[in-house]
Design a protein around this nucleic acid. Sequence first.
DNA 1: ATTGCGATTTGATCCAGATCAAATCTCCGT
DNA 2: ACGGAGATTTGATCTGGATCAAATCGCAAT
Lengths: 238, 238
Amino acid sequence: MDVARSEVLVIGTSVACRSCQARHGVVCGALSAGQLSELGRHSLRRKVDAGCEIIAQGSENSFYSNITRGVVKLCKVMSDGRQQIVGLQFAPDFVGRPFVRESTLSAEAATDAEICVFPRNLLERMILETRELQRSLHAQALNELDAAREWMLTLGRRTAEEKVASLLHLIAAHAETATSTAFDLPLSRAEIADFLGLTIETVSRQLTRLRKEGVIRIENIRHITVPDMDALAKKISG
Amino acid sequence: MDVARSEVLVIGTSVACRSCQARHGVVCGALSAGQLSELGRHSLRRKVDAGCEIIAQGSENSFYSNITRGVVKLCKVMSDGRQQIVGLQFAPDFVGRPFVRESTLSAEAATDAEICVFPRNLLERMILETRELQRSLHAQALNELDAAREWMLTLGRRTAEEKVASLLHLIAAHAETATSTAFDLPLSRAEIADFLGLTIETVSRQLTRLRKEGVIRIENIRHITVPDMDALAKKISG
DNA sequence: ATTGCGATTTGATCCAGATCAAATCTCCGT
DNA sequence: ACGGAGATTTGATCTGGATCAAATCGCAAT
């Protein structure tokens, strides 16, 4: 854990998990008041800056988290440096791979974020004890699997323009604004490229192409508006 | 269900699921004797030919299965015909997407196969009733998620030669022979292309390239031997 | 305001893999 | 054995996206 780039807000009190529960964190939302209090005593709330590595690829899975604010990217890197983002997670998702010792991917805050961290052993014990927690984590795993497979279609069979449009559509769907026609990109151009299996140059060219076609407006480098969401959707062949 | 291309072996007796249990089917392996008997009374064993569609994309999820023999491919197709295989499943995997009404992908037998089919409602009730079944399906979902993410790296960032080598490596790992240095391809060239996000021509060229390099021998169109598994692994940049 | 540096865009060229086209190979039915 | 049709391989060419190169932008530190 990169302590230098994170700030621990609360340690070792049952207060720690109130925030998760209030936000229906996948873990905390499934626990009884008593369990929540026990979890709270052993958990901590962390504020992490964009870019902070929460889990390192190849490291031991010694803790898990709930995301309470912000966006987390899941990334796999090859020994020669090529890398691929294999998932984006948003509040109130659970982050971690239960029941496996070593992580096969890294998890990194894509934006400034807040997470609620619990020790591995305690969480795994609670999963075994608590039907509702297992059910809730099972449901998240199935949703992530659906998302991963949808993304496999994008990676394998869509063109660069369709890929970029798919990403914008995905981000818009998770944007917190009611209109969701204007949103901040949680990813840099390089991260977008790593998500789409493209280069930054191609991402940039496709964004300017969508802009010239009038499908999006690039208010500034991190902020996009979509005048007509259907026009964007039409760019993604179903 | 494409009944024309399948053969129902046993219907409506508690015998039906013995085969799943003996093979440690993900579902049947998690049930008590009493539950197994109830499941057996409502399940049926089917023999399906290669190419038989088990679940159609967009259809209602009205039943689930255990694979007891053979290989099943999970496939997504776009309206313009482009398609992507998003998963391969082997015995004793469970096939289906619990808790979702409509299937977002199709499942098709890649080889001749046998599956044990249960009705949706019964299985979902048993999941809610039975810790061990939920645990077991949760574990499979997590494993499929790991596999899907590994494959996203392959789709997004590996070259055609690395992709083909990755596929051969994957198949070899699931081959049932003890040596696993010689195996049958469960997929045609077209299916391999759809799994790797390539065209059949590129798949064919990469296979002959690997053959000319001495990494594989193509005994016949569906049968490969790998003289030195490490040489194959070296073709896949980690 | 000015400098400096990383992020982004834009331009020029290249190339891995797609596309188009044609042989071969397999295997099934007669 | 003989057709014949689909599957596979091989060849020729094209092209979308990569790579190499150079502005330009954004913004934090001075």
